[in-house]
Every structure is written in structure tokens, then in C-alpha cells.
Design a binder for these strands. Sequence first.
DNA 1: GTGAAAGCGCTAACAC
DNA 2: GTGTTAGCGCTTTCAC
Lengths: 361, 361
Amino acid sequence: MYVYNYANVCIVLWGRIMKKSPTIKDIARKAGVNISTVSRALADHPHISEDKKKQIRKLAADLNYHRNDLAKSLRVKKTHVIGLIIPDIQNPFYPSITRIIEDQAQERGYNILLCHSDFDPQKENNYLSVLLSRQIDGLIIFPTLKIFRNNKRGIVAGKKIPTVFLDTAPLPGIEGNYVFTDNKHGSYLAVKYLLENGHKSIVLFTSEKGLLSSLEQMEEGYIQAFREAGIRVQNKCIFRGELEEKKGLERSVKKLLNKKKSINYSAIICNSDVVARVIYEQAALMDINIPDSLSVVGYDNTFLCSYLDPPLTSVHQPGDALGHQAINILISQIQSEIPWQYRTVSFTPELVVRNSVKQNV
Amino acid sequence: MYVYNYANVCIVLWGRIMKKSPTIKDIARKAGVNISTVSRALADHPHISEDKKKQIRKLAADLNYHRNDLAKSLRVKKTHVIGLIIPDIQNPFYPSITRIIEDQAQERGYNILLCHSDFDPQKENNYLSVLLSRQIDGLIIFPTLKIFRNNKRGIVAGKKIPTVFLDTAPLPGIEGNYVFTDNKHGSYLAVKYLLENGHKSIVLFTSEKGLLSSLEQMEEGYIQAFREAGIRVQNKCIFRGELEEKKGLERSVKKLLNKKKSINYSAIICNSDVVARVIYEQAALMDINIPDSLSVVGYDNTFLCSYLDPPLTSVHQPGDALGHQAINILISQIQSEIPWQYRTVSFTPELVVRNSVKQNV
DNA sequence: GTGAAAGCGCTAACAC
DNA sequence: GTGTTAGCGCTTTCAC
């Protein structure tokens, strides 16, 4: 590719003459004023005469001028870009959160860099590194727990970028804003409901230990509900599957359903509606009837619930509210001119009963 | 906010001493070399001795150095950022496309700025302007048709940013890459299938004239199918609803269903599965049975289809393939060192038959 | 193999 | 009210 600079106006590219993007310098030359005057006029600075402002704005429009935000950001040390790291936009829990975050951000002059982590600490770390290089003003993340262990004095902590941790209970010693659902209570509700309906052997579908705060919390709630009922929890009823990718999830679900012969559980509590969906699919293939021979409780209460057959009983997480809080808190911190007091917002989940649990076993 | 620069190492902020992000200058000073040496070492330039490289890399890691990409981008005139403008991530057609685009981009060193247009030309324009200011290297957009009329010599065209137009048949005189489904054929298939099943009065649910290329195409296919069958199309069978926002869509659907008494149509062809879903919802409220008193054909063949009751017959659009093509073409153009030959890729849709159409009327 | 220096486009402190 | 100028952090050309 051959590029020649020609009088600061054109570039000869591939033999064709193309316009170089105009800069304030070009506008200044045409208007016969200094570049700082242009800069001020376009920023609607008070001490510039209205005439000049009008003239300069017209010139800018005529030239199809667009400010180079890179230069501005480099200078003022603010990018108005927010990094958003979610597990996977294809999980129906995330689109509404993403949409709300983007809408609010846009309204307040920020843009969103979208990243998918798949709950994979390594992907998460890579993105974090990229986002820091890009000088994001703030970060919203559904973090794995490893991020805290690996990066305590590392990426997030070291750079002190305003951060909202979503779906994570506060971690001792880690400063940051936390917005989450009380997942301990969520699983507690699910277990309690199942126990009340006579279920005894209830599996909790979760992941490898120490992956996600929300899952650790769910385990606690699960255990607590049993304890309150005076029932001992068997270790094998906590099932650790692979959540990271679709194939892995299917494999795990198959494995779990095969175990039904040995451990005769009657119900599964999932950590998301997506897991429940896979259970429905695999159960159908194995001729296991839901809810007659297997009860299922989902998590998130996404619109999948009403479309599944039978409709899925699920623990409602207020996705919209989580997104709202996250973006508002983040922008507040970014724009705060006084020392920031970190916020923790938690929501209480509710059980939404549909028809995937067998009554009065 | 009071900020003091102190020896280029620390900043006193809100009374606390905070580390300023280290720059290559800091590394250079510590290593006792010139900043250009550091720059070269970190870029793995060939003419730097291995010893120095090692030393400098270690120093960078120790300082938790992250290159300032703003400065780099400003200098090299490449941001490695791609703008993605989609209507709404909450429509289940878009998450998989988005995911694929982001994945491929990330793999090749690009990041995605996510924008929601809601098919609103004004929002679209605003985002375009923002993205240009941000100096994106490329753009993927589901455009409204107005963009072409308003910006022929304007935003997109004027700046010559590599662009992939998604879901739009090529527009005469507008250069760019086009990736789309042959929606003319899609609606043709739907009408043909309905006619074969004895339906006579078939409504096409579309939007205001001239909003989207895909909808204009659908109209053509719709008309063609009738013409081939020797049936005259009545104007009132092309229904123009509001797609932009949820409330508007519901209102339009209600209006259309109310018309069933006057125009006794037996089937509706939707321009998306989401529209079909709203029809299902409203029909249920109005005690209209699907498919007995109303047949519905969806569009996109998203996973909604199998979850709706009865399962929705829908025209399949290969979302994944669209996303794949779009991002690959875009990055190819961005990285091309020779004059770019614009590409047009179209996919042929298929009708996926389920149970939402009454047979042999 | 390494250093010196220019400059990307912009803002803002300082001058008048 | 407007001009001059330094400098954000980086890459890259040109010396040596």
C-alpha cells in the first residue's frame, strides 16, 4: 500500500486521490484562525464570539469533520469507553442486561466494548489486559473467582479502574462495587420448595469448586436448607459439571442423568435456565419424563421458562435491575469528584413456580 | 479533584498517593536506555539484543505496564476496533451473530463496540458519527435504507471506512460489502407453502415503506408468488406495523388482529420470529386459535420456533454464516494491501415446517 | 544495536 | 476573545 502525504489535504492511495480526514488544523486554515479557536468553538467554549462559532461549525460540517477522539482521549485521559465482560451473549440471561447497560451508557456519552469470557479465567484475563491497554474508563464484569486470586495486586487492583462486579458477593479485601442477587437465598428457596413437595434426594447442578461466587453461594443456601430441615446433605448430590462450552455442558448433563440409576434423585436444581434446557433435551432423548420422573428447577427465570414444555419453575433474578444498577453505579464513580465510597447492592430472588416440579411426591 | 504530578511516578489524589500508569519512558529510565529501545523491545523488533529484550520485558511485567493503545493508534492510524450496529440484542436472531463476530474479531486482534439502532435512522446516524470519531477500522451494520439516502456523500461514504452491510441487498451506486439472505426468495417460499395449503388471503407483516431492504425484498417475493399463482394481491394484505419498539409492535399486532373481522385473512407471514411471538401472545388474549383460525409463518428460524406452542413454521436465515462472512470479509478488507474488490454474499433461505400453519384449508 | 527527535490531533495553561 | 505553545504516549525515520 503506497501512501503519499500531499499538502496535508489529500492522500494518493492505490492510484486514486482520497481525502484525508480533516483536522482542526484544516478548519483553522480555512477559517483563518488558530487551531485553539477552532477547538474552543467546536467545544462551545463561552469566550468565543457567536459569529466565529457559527462560521467554524459550518466549515466543520461542510468538510464532514469528525473529531479524532483518540487524540482527545490521549490528551484528557478519558476515553468514555466502558468494558463489558459477560460470559456469553447467547445465554438469554445476558441480552437484556447488555441492552440496558449499553442504552444507559450511550445516553450518558459512553460506549461499550463487548467481551465474552465463557467463565474462562484465561479469556477473562486476556480481555482485561486488552481493555486496560485501551484505557477504558470503567469496567463491568461477571468475574470468575480466579480473577481475585490471580490479580489481587495485578490487573484490576493495580490499575484502580472503576469496576462493578456483577453476580458476585463481595470478597473480603477486594475493593469494588458489587451488584448481585442473593444466590444463597435463591437456592435455599428452591430446595425448600422441593422439600415441601416431598422430594428428598435433590441434586445441585454446579461447576468446579471455586469458579464462581454465585455458585459457591448457591451451595451454601442448598446446604442450609437441608440443615434447617434436619437432613444430612450427601456429597454426591452436589454435581460439578462443565459450564464453559456447549459440548461440555451436554456431556455433563448426560453423565448426571446416567447417574439417576445409582443415586435415585428425584430433582435437579440448575444454576441457569440454559442448563435446564439441556436437561430437558437430554431427558427427552433418554425417555425421562419431566416432571413425573424428574423435577427440574431453573435459575434466572428467562423467557425460556415459559417456552419449555412443561414450563420451567425457576428462581427469578432481576436482570434488568442488575444492569441498571451496574451501569449507574459505574458512571457515578467515574464521574465522581470526591473519594468514592464503594457500593454493594443485592437483590432478593424469588421462586417462580411453573410446572416442572412434581407435587407431593 | 486535585491532581499533582510528582516526579512522573506518583499522583497525589484525594490525599492518597496513587501510582500513575507507567509508560515506556518510565521503563526506559529504569533500564537506562532510550524510549525507542523500549518500544522496539516490547514490539519484538529484530534489531534489539535478546538480553535487552529480556530485561525490558521483565521490567515491564514488574511495573504492571500496559501499552497505551490510544497513543499507538493515534500514531499508526489504526485502532483495531470494529463498530457493530445491530437493531436489538434482545431479538434472539442477533446474539449468535454478535457472538461469532466478536469471537472472530478477538481472535484476530480486534475488539467490538456494540451499538443498538432499533431500526431507527436517527439512532443509527448518531452512532455512526460516534464511531467515526472513535476512528474505528471497520463497520458492520444492519442498516436502514435511509442511511443510504442521507449519507450518500456523508458519513459512511465520505470517510470510506471498510463496511459490511448485513441483511441488505446491494444498493445501486453504493459501494460496500453486502452479506444477506435472499429475502425475496424467503417470503416467496412462505407464500407458496401457504397457497399450496389452500390459504388465499395471506397478510404480509412488514413495516413502513422504505425502512429496510430486507422488507422491500420480502414484498417483492410475496407479490411474485401470488403473480405466479395467478392471484391478484390486494394492497390491504400488506400490513405496515411499527417494529422499532416493543409497545409499538404490540399495538400494531392488536390492530392487525382486530382487522381479521373485516378482511378475513387466514394467515400471516412475519418478518421475524419475534413478531410471530407477539402474534401468539395477542392471539391467545383474543381467543384466536393458532393454527386453526390463524396460520402464522415466522422468519429467522430462531430457537423461539420450537418453544412456541404450536411450534412455529419459519423461514430459516443462517445467522451464524452471515456473521462469519461479515467479520471475515471486513477484516480481509481492513488488512488488504491491494485495492479492495467489494464482495456480495447471499444465502438462500429455507422454509422450516412445523405446526403453525393449518394444512389443506 | 541504540539514540535523538519529529509528529499523530487534540486540549488547556498562559500570554496579550 | 484569540493566539502560542507544551505535551498526552507512542512509533518510526534518520543518524551513528
